[in-house]
Design a protein around this nucleic acid. Structure first.
Lengths: 150, 150
DNA sequence: TGTTTTTTGTTCATGCTTGAACTAACTTTG
DNA sequence: CAAAGTTAGTTCAAGCATGAACAAAAAACA
């Protein structure tokens, strides 16, 4: 099968991706710890961010955007409603869909969490220039597009 | 607090990281599905890759390398031993540590899985040149280093 | 040497995520 | 309009990952 000389670790794309995966795991861990004092989980922050940018989303749309199962949203929402971060409102014309909105408290918590998030990211990416970041972001967005066919 | 104009989404580093996180999630999903026919989970593949490159590791070292809890390794190993992929061997001089080795079957399954992995990565990163990949990998490794202080 | 501290791996309860099965509501089609 | 198909959200059981508490072994230290 594979010989030693054509191992994936000699493949630039593969090596790069391994580094990406490692960095992502490290950041997730660091961010989770940073979010703890705010009483937020990373999954909850993801929800808040998405709801801030797309208010009135249905649970289905939110799940698709977060690349997560629909049931996951169902399980997570009650906690966030209890914490007063999110409000659910039945759609007027379609009685199946529930539209999601941030409460003022949710928006305020989001802002605090974003401060933690950006502090972390600015710190770990401090050595990368904005131009380098832009280039990287562009490649990452291409990846997401390439995998968009579910 | 934050005004609309200094939202994190206008921060190049932050925007980039969001794209990275999304791409990572998408690849994890795609790869998991690709690994299914081989009867491997992503976590198991991570273990196999690490054991291939660092044979004779202790469980503690493996956990640290994978950025994962020690108990996680304990829970995962029995399945892999049952599948005949990994062999555990008590250290000669330190009776606490168990050293981990790939079996031939484990190595063979690893190679098949790596083929799936590299195919996927080569496909989604096809539009990025090796030089761009190298640059990206370098930045990612810097991130991991920046977060290395646990 | 004998006592304390550290390290390795395990166990266990908890929480997160998932996918399949289900209900209710909307849409399509005949 | 009625039947069939599709879509939104929920429930539930199963699989994973985690961290705290623990036992055994080794290291540090007095």
């Amino acid at each position: 099968m594979n010989k030693k000389q054509d191992l994936p670790w000699d493949n630039p794309r593969f090596r790069t991706w391994i580094a990406v995966a490692r960095a992502e795991k490290a950041i997730v861990r660091a961010l989770s710890r940073g979010l703890e004092p705010l009483g937020l989980k990373l999954a909850q922050l993801d929800m808040l961010m998405n709801l801030y940018r797309h208010p009135g989303q249905s649970q289905h749309d939110l799940a698709r955007r977060l690349l997560v199962g629909r049931s996951n949203i169902t399980m997570l929402l009650p906690q966030m409603e209890t914490q007063g971060l999110v409000r659910r409102e039945g759609d007027a014309t379609d009685k199946r869909v529930l539209r999601l909105y941030l409460t003022p408290e949710g928006e305020s918590r989001l802002m605090k969490a974003l401060a933690v998030y950006t502090d972390l990211i600015d710190r770990v990416l401090a050595q990368s220039t904005p131009a380098q970041c832009e280039a990287m972001g562009e490649q990452m967005r291409r990846i997401s597009e390439a995998l968009a066919e579910d």
